[in-house]
Simulated scan of single mutants.
Amino acid sequence: MHVRLLWLPHAMPGSLFAALDVLRTASGIAQLQRPGRECGLSWQVIGETGRALPMPVPGLVRSRRRSRAAKRGRKQGETRSLLVIPGVMARNAPHLGELFEQQRAVLKLVERHAQAGGWIAASFNGIAYAAELGLLDGARIGAPWLYQSWMARRYRLCDFTHDEPMGVHGRVFHSVAPALQTEFMLRVLGHLHDPDLAQASARVLLLQAERQLLTPALTAQRWLTPTADSPVFRARRWLRDHIGAPYRLAEVAGAAAVSERTLLRHFRQVTGMTPLAYLHALRIERAKTLLEVSLHGTQAIAEACGYSDAATFRRLFQRATGMSMSDYRARYALRARRRYWRVEDGLREGTAA
């Protein structure tokens, strides 16, 4: 997929930089997962004439040319082209209309792109560029509240009353707020390019609340303050701190300062599951993290998750995720294989030379 990031005189640059962050992160993860292979992603920043521009921020990254795979796809007639349209710094709705009158070349560029079968990802008031060309006629989408009334009057064939913050109509992806740009581009990436790569990138770029709680325990740097919260809170905290320990309900109930029967009742009411099921979920999440960022084998990972029998844990992982541990690592790994990063191998070769 080739992505063109449209830089306009009044563009909100954060939208483009967020899109670029997603593309660069996805490309980096793809290189870690499949070293030496093209990831199929390329991008460039273009001006209103459609010509490539150097990056507006010196030292960030230069425009990247299309990969050989993308060029081959274009010759074979495949459509893998995306135009990212940012929001613009309009003072108000009438000023947005004035910008359209001043940027007829931009509208022509968007029109040519659409006529060639390309996809569009427009955010904030940038969706008006697609609406101006009739690309959203018949759609029911969300629009920025500040411009909603103006858009409804100007583009009467489009319904802007939808409450969803982002979506897709035809070949136009749309988002109502610049702050959603990272999540928005991840959705576009998953839809048009590679869902697995988009999911792996989301784990890096979006807040992972549960992992923020679990990861410190992996590195033995967790800091906890005393709390007198609910028994369920204390039980969950104890389970997170003892993921690798054998499960004994009596110990969990003791940590929660209630009877086993009371703990089971309250735990199910609050979480919808038993403490053991919750512990299994924590162990699966820990295993996913280790598969993604470490080089440990399945036996070591099973032991880190409280199982001496790796075969038993592999079956649990398969039931929970729908895939084997090796398949999960192949799809979502966030680091290169050992032979691509071991510095000591290079040092030995240098010494031998």
Rank of each mutant, 00 (worst) to 15 (best):
R68S: 09
S67Q: 09
A122G: 14
L279Y: 02
G36N: 08
A152Q: 15
H191W: 05
R140F: 00
R187W: 01
V343A: 11
V88E: 02
V168D: 00
A139F: 09
A235V: 13
A90G: 06
L316S: 10
G28K: 12
R339V: 01
S81R: 15
A202N: 07
A26Q: 10
A70F: 00
R51L: 08
A310S: 15
L157H: 13
R329S: 04
W341I: 11
Q318W: 08
L186G: 09
R203S: 08
V188D: 02
H242G: 05
M12K: 12
A353C: 13
A302Q: 08
Q208A: 11
G59I: 07
L53I: 06
F160I: 01
S308M: 01
A217W: 12
Q318G: 04
R91C: 00
A300N: 09
G167H: 10
F317L: 03
A245F: 07
L135D: 02
T298Q: 14
A130L: 05
V84Y: 07
S123N: 10
L5E: 00
A310Q: 15
Q181I: 07
S230P: 12
A235D: 03
R240Y: 02
G50H: 06
R319T: 11
V61I: 10
L189D: 09
S27Q: 15
Y340N: 11
V232H: 11
R286N: 02
R342H: 08
L107C: 12
S294G: 04
W150A: 13
L334R: 15
A277M: 07
A122Y: 05
R154A: 04
R337V: 09
L157Q: 15
Y328I: 03
R112W: 01
G40M: 05
Q318P: 02
